[in-house]
Amino acid sequence: MSITYKLENISKIYDGKQILNIKELEFKTGEIFGLVGPSGAGKSTLLRLLNFLEKPSSGRIKYNGNGYLDGTLPDLDQRRSITTVLQRSALLHQSVWKNVIFPLEIRDIKITKAKSSEIEELLQYLGLYEIKDQRADKLSGGEAQRVAMARAVVFEPDVLLLDEPTSNLDPSNISIIEKMIQRYIKKAGKTIIMVTHNIMQAKRLADRVGLIYEGEMIEVAEKNKFFNNPERNLTEKFLDGELIY
């Protein structure tokens, strides 16, 4: 398995306060990585660094073998191979269809007949086809998040970062999005890193799980080992619900 990301001595400081301090961390191509931890632990900050939306205060992020030291950024093509689905879906005040094809439009990808059928199939899969002409700002929370998911996968990024994509959703919407995640990871060369507060979701989806606490990676392990036989006391406490979040 090749390595998508390698983080070395990454630190992020806001207003003099250290938010992240990660000595070493790798994300492998083809895996779903579940990132868990209490609120304010630095999970979302880490995703923003991985998406190159923010620069680390120091350290090196290696992406696809290229190193980016102390906040240098990859070129646009490289950055466009990564995207994030945010916790609160941020959609354009346009139709569902327009929202979904937006990433293709900004990449000057023509919507051919074949591409159009592909998108329609994606919308069918996510239960959005019937409402494709509806305005996105009129949708329910679950529908909006499914549109955000469709928009994220439509251009087939190599890295899909998910920031609590199913929080506040009902079970049927959670199920649709989880199925989409499982379907997407089957495509060649994809990596999914998912922040979740839902331990059961991490159990269902992730190949490896990492606990982040006060900006530091406490433990990273294969799913079964993480949940059944954690090495660190803090991980046990977290799984037992003793860490406040």
Partner: peptide
């Protein structure tokens, strides 16, 4: 933030 993440 979302637009930047989508690569605009």
């Amino acid at each position: 933030l979302q637009l930047r993440s989508l690569g605009v």
